[in-house]
Amino acid sequence: MDSTYLVELSRTIITYYDFSIIKSENHDFLLSDHYVTTSALSIKGQYVNVSNRHLGLKDVLVLIPLSSKYYIAYFNGDKPSYLKTNQINLLDHEQVKQINRTILNNSYTKCIGQNRESIEAIVDDFKYESPSRAVVGYESGKQTAALRKKERSILL
C-alpha cells in the first residue's frame, strides 16, 4: 500500500471529479470481480503506462458499490445525462442496464447480482477479453511493459 499515492489519488478525485449517488429501486445493480468499476467516457489513445480508464484522467467514470441498490459515482467529462452532480439519481430500467453493461464488461471473469434477471438482461452483451501486456523497447536497450486492462466505455 503506497499511502502517498492513495492520498494524491484521493485529492485528485475530490478536486477534479464530480460526485453523485445512483440508485436502482429494485436492487438490480451488479458487482464486478474488480469491485470498483472504471470506465472511459471518451476515446483516448493507448499509452505505455496508463489506460483509457486510468484513475485521475479526464473523461473517466468511477463506480463504487455500496449495495445492489446504491453505487457512488465519481466522474469527469462527458457523462450520461442521468448523472446529476451531488444528488441521489434514481435510474430507470434502461439506465440500470447501461450501468450494468459497463460493470459486466469491465469484469474479467466474474460478475454477480442479487437478481438473476439483472444478469440475464445483459449477458449477451458480454465481451471476453484477456488482459494483454504492451511491451516497449527503447533505443538504449531498456524495456518497459504495461498491463492493458479490459476497457469498455459506458457509452458503448
Rank of each mutant, 00 (worst) to 15 (best):
V36L: 09
Q98K: 14
R11D: 13
T12V: 07
L155R: 10
K150F: 05
K127F: 01
V62M: 13
D124C: 08
K23C: 11
T109G: 12
D78S: 12
E25T: 10
K127H: 14
I103Y: 01
S68C: 07
N86D: 15
N105F: 02
S10G: 14
S39N: 10
Q114D: 07
P131L: 05
T15A: 13
P80A: 04
N76G: 04
N49Y: 07
S68Q: 08
I13R: 03
G137T: 10
S10W: 01
E151C: 13
Q98N: 12
E151I: 07
T102S: 15
F29N: 09
K58L: 01
F29Q: 02
S67K: 06
K149P: 00
D125Q: 12
H34S: 15
Y138H: 11
D125C: 08
P131W: 08
G137P: 00
S68T: 09
T109K: 10
N26D: 13
D28C: 09
K149M: 01
Y82P: 01
E8N: 15
N76W: 01
Y108Q: 13
L91K: 01
K23H: 14
S10Q: 09
D125G: 00
F75N: 10
T144C: 04
K127Y: 08
A134D: 05
L91Q: 09
D28W: 03
Y16A: 06
V62F: 03
F126V: 06
E8C: 12
I103N: 03
I99K: 03
Y128W: 12
S3K: 13
Y82H: 06
Y108A: 02
H54M: 08
N100W: 03
R152F: 11
T15R: 15
V123C: 14
K44Y: 05
L104R: 03
E151D: 08
L63H: 01
A73K: 03
S20E: 13
I154Q: 06
C111F: 03
S153E: 10
S10F: 05
K44T: 13
S51C: 04
I112M: 09
L41M: 15
Y35M: 11
S10E: 14
H54D: 11
C111D: 07
V60M: 05
L30P: 01
S130A: 15
Y74L: 14
L91V: 14
Y108S: 05
Y108V: 04
N105G: 11
N26K: 12
Y82A: 09
L147N: 15
K97D: 13
T144F: 04
R133L: 11
S32R: 04
S24I: 00
R101G: 09
E139M: 04
V136N: 08
H54F: 02
Q87N: 09
L30Q: 11
N89H: 03
K79M: 07
H54W: 03
S140H: 10
I112L: 06
D92E: 12
Q143L: 09
S32W: 00
L83M: 15
N105S: 06
D125H: 05
L55P: 05
G141T: 14
A145V: 07
V7L: 12
T38G: 05
K84T: 11
E139R: 09
I72N: 10
K58I: 02
S81W: 02
